[in-house]
Amino acid sequence: MICICLTLFSALNSHSFAQEAQGKQFAYFGLEPDIVTNYLGTSNRKLGYVRITIELMLEDVDDLELADHHSPLLRATAIEILGRQPEERVKSLTGREDIRRTFLETMRKLMKQETGSNMIKDVIFTKYIYYG
């Protein structure tokens, strides 16, 4: 048991040293407050709403300031993407993953255009609530 713990600790330690040796440390930036918007219901008269909390995993701690500066653009993009989603996509697990990937691809492209850097490594939904 002790051997397994030491091996695991050693592996984790070497990973963090390798990351520091490259001069980069991942950082997380939360788009605050939560994103709340409508999505398309099954009929034209029916709207639902979705509320999500988004954390962006950034390539480097130095990108936090840029993410903060561009947060209004990132929030607007998230609202626009969610507003175009049909009900079945919002409510399904595979649809949720598709939405997350769409966020990631779109936000990466935007930040590449705005900053010249692929600063967003991943998009994480820490809260995902829908009604409708």
Rank of each mutant, 00 (worst) to 15 (best):
T94V: 09
P33V: 05
T106K: 12
K112S: 07
E87K: 12
V90C: 03
L31P: 11
V50N: 07
F29R: 12
I54M: 05
G83Y: 07
K46E: 15
V123E: 04
R45N: 14
E87L: 05
Y28W: 13
D122R: 14
H70E: 12
C3V: 11
K46C: 07
E59I: 07
D34M: 13
S92K: 03
F29Y: 15
H70G: 04
R100F: 01
E65R: 13
E32W: 04
A78M: 09
I35R: 10
Q85K: 13
T42C: 00
F26I: 12
Q19W: 00
L56P: 07
E114Y: 02
Y49W: 09
I54S: 02
H70F: 15
T115L: 08
Y39G: 11
R89M: 13
Y128C: 07
L66P: 04
L104N: 02
K121I: 04
T7Y: 08
M111D: 01
A67W: 01
L56V: 08
R89C: 03
C5D: 09
G23C: 11
Y28C: 13
M57L: 15
P33R: 07
M1E: 06
K112T: 05
H15Y: 14
G41V: 05
E87I: 02
T115N: 08
Q19V: 10
T42F: 00
F26T: 11
T115P: 10
Y39T: 12
T106A: 09
G23N: 11
L110E: 12
D68Y: 06
F103L: 08
L74W: 02
S14F: 08
T77N: 10
S10V: 06
V36I: 15
L110N: 13
R89Y: 00
K24T: 14
Y130D: 14
G41I: 05
K109L: 11
E87H: 08
G48A: 07
E87W: 01
Y39V: 13
K91D: 00
G95D: 03
D62W: 00
D63Q: 11
R108S: 06
P72A: 03
L40A: 12
A27P: 08
Y130M: 10
R108P: 02
R75W: 01
L31Q: 11
